[in-house]
């Protein structure tokens, strides 16, 4: 069986109650689903002996600059067993600041730690249960999230405090 069909069928078999949307572009498989299930799905993908997605390569987010469902969190995971890369996407439903959060997957892959800190730093998305959710690149007292589409390319004058004399 093709690895793409295997992943999709195993996910549907294990989680019949979750609505998985799959899409393919340039031979890459993307699976999107609700954010409530992210940890369970990730743990299953990592620990299932036929799949073994043991390498979490990247966690990032997309700002769609829309009023509703503004952000989508994207995970790239890789299985050394099949040499296959899978993309998981969880849209953050809602338009309030409090909706922009998702459970952390650091409990599944340790490498998600810094990647999630970077997403928090750049987009302001909170990762519930993250052990050390600090800013990654910007100073702690920086008030903005630079990769959001409403942050100007030139920056905001005065937003970075100068060192004390």
């Amino acid at each position: 069986m093709d690895i793409k069909d295997l992943v999709v069928s195993k996910l549907k078999e294990k989680f019949p109650e979750i609505n998985f949307e799959t899409s393919e572009f340039r031979d890459e498989l993307t699976v999107s689903f609700d954010k409530q299930n992210i940890v369970d799905v990730c743990r299953f993908l990592k620990e299932d002996p036929e799949l073994e997605f043991r390498l979490c390569e990247d966690v990032t987010a997309i700002d769609w600059a829309a009023r509703k469902n503004r952000f989508t969190v994207v995970y790239h995971i890789f299985t050394l067993k099949h040499n296959f890369r899978l993309r998981l996407k969880v849209p953050l439903i809602g338009s309030e600041e409090s909706d922009w959060s998702v459970d952390t997957v650091t409990t599944v892959w340790k490498s998600a730690n810094w990647a999630e800190r970077e997403v928090y730093d750049m987009y302001g998305i909170k990762f519930a249960g993250h052990p050390d959710l600090r800013r990654m690149y910007m100073p702690e007292d920086f008030e903005y999230y630079p990769l959001r589409k409403d942050f100007p390319l030139m920056g905001i004058p005065g937003s970075l405090s100068l060192p004390k004399k």
Binding site: M122, R135, M136, Y137, M138, P139, P146, L147, F151, L153
Partner: peptide, 11 residues
Amino acid sequence: LGYLHRGYEKM
């Protein structure tokens, strides 16, 4: 980290 952050993704 971040002392050489130039915001290449934004650019």
